[in-house]
Design a protein around this nucleic acid. Structure first.
Lengths: 121, 121, 121, 121
DNA sequence: GTGGTCTAGACCACG
DNA sequence: GTGGTCTAGACCACG
């Protein structure tokens, strides 16, 4: 899995890493139980500090997406907690995005199509 | 229109103001041409620095949502640019939210229902 | 409130800080809404790096014990979530401690007295 | 006696082994003088490095819980030192746990009941 | 002035 | 070899 950092983004690097790994898990690009690159390997690959990668991994761990053990590094968790609901933050964000979509003149059916595409088959 | 600030949110206050005004425009609570409160009035009402409100208005202006002139203060723009598409940032955010929704076990039809509710009739 | 770091402890410094603040809240030494020292002030006071203090505060924040805002720094949260149960980790620790207490020959009534003292009137 | 290792726990494996053996002694599952499995046998059984098991046994020996000799391997000590008091570390941990229990809204009588259950009849 | 982010570099426990 | 911890120092956004 390739992580791409946008150094000009307002989103902190550790959060970009976190987000891309979550999206990789969601898309199936990273499968349950799969090994993630080591903190050192990933930090060298994308040219950032190990602390920054480590912070991303710790967030993913605290969110229950990955597990780390001392021997093997980090792996995607086999059973991720299925809350079956959006976090309040994500719900707020979604409301904001929908508001902006409506103002920009996107039709409801086009927005639905966009969601379908992003969700995947 | 009432603006509610969460001073402990990770979202900067100026961005909370900006977001709520955009959502007000989108919902129709703020209509085209409608006068916004002055920077001074709004800052007093929500108990924050005028600079913070001013920053929110500047962003809204640069995004094309409002117009300001010295005489009349700020007003909702009559014709907001209808790009008919999401910004790259919003598209990225939407992808992230959908990813997290999928991992959390939300069914596609339930997500669609949520979108419908948020979008409004 | 005075924070004391034991540099020889196996417990990481950020965790010692976190623990002492939690105990301060529990004992009432830190009351709801009370201002915590700034990251910089506390790090200077106890002679450690700001990052280490910052990590302690971030953990306390994520656990719901404190709130931070950009203007005023960190404060004890007014309503802390009342789960009314021990975490699994704390329950495991408690079981281990009780086992060791029993082996060391502590009588049940003496252990109860110890709990009473620690709990406070 | 069955040892269960959680490879993802923050508690080092050697400490998990140490803890479970101490709890086994405390509960009576391991009786005074009873033979422990050899380092080699236990390490194979739970699928970990012999060094890790060896470290656990060394700690148990230094704490006075077991005796080792080349001929007979490790055995539970006949008379374990009865200090009749908690170690400083355990007392600190207990204070921390009680603090968190109080904050989480657990009533004193419920905490006492929990202690009773964990202590056993 | 406040917390948040990031780096370069170091050391350590674990296994 | 792995992640975890910590430092000294810097810069930044927010308000």
């Amino acid at each position: 899995m390739i992580i791409r950092i946008n150094e000009y983004s307002d989103i902190p690097i550790y959060m970009q890493i976190r987000n891309q790994i979550v999206m990789g898990i969601s898309s199936g690009e990273l499968s349950a139980g799969e090994q993630l690159p080591t903190v050192r390997a990933l930090s060298m690959e994308i040219g950032i500090n190990t602390m920054t990668v480590s912070k991303a991994y710790q967030i993913l761990k605290s969110e229950g997406y990955i597990l780390t053990d001392r021997k093997n590094g980090a792996r995607v968790r086999m059973e991720i907690n299925q809350s079956k609901s959006l976090s309040n933050e994500n719900a707020d964000e979604l409301r904001r995005i929908i508001s902006e979509a409506k103002i920009s003149g996107i039709a409801k059916e086009d927005f639905n199509k966009l969601i379908d595409e992003m969700w995947g088959k």
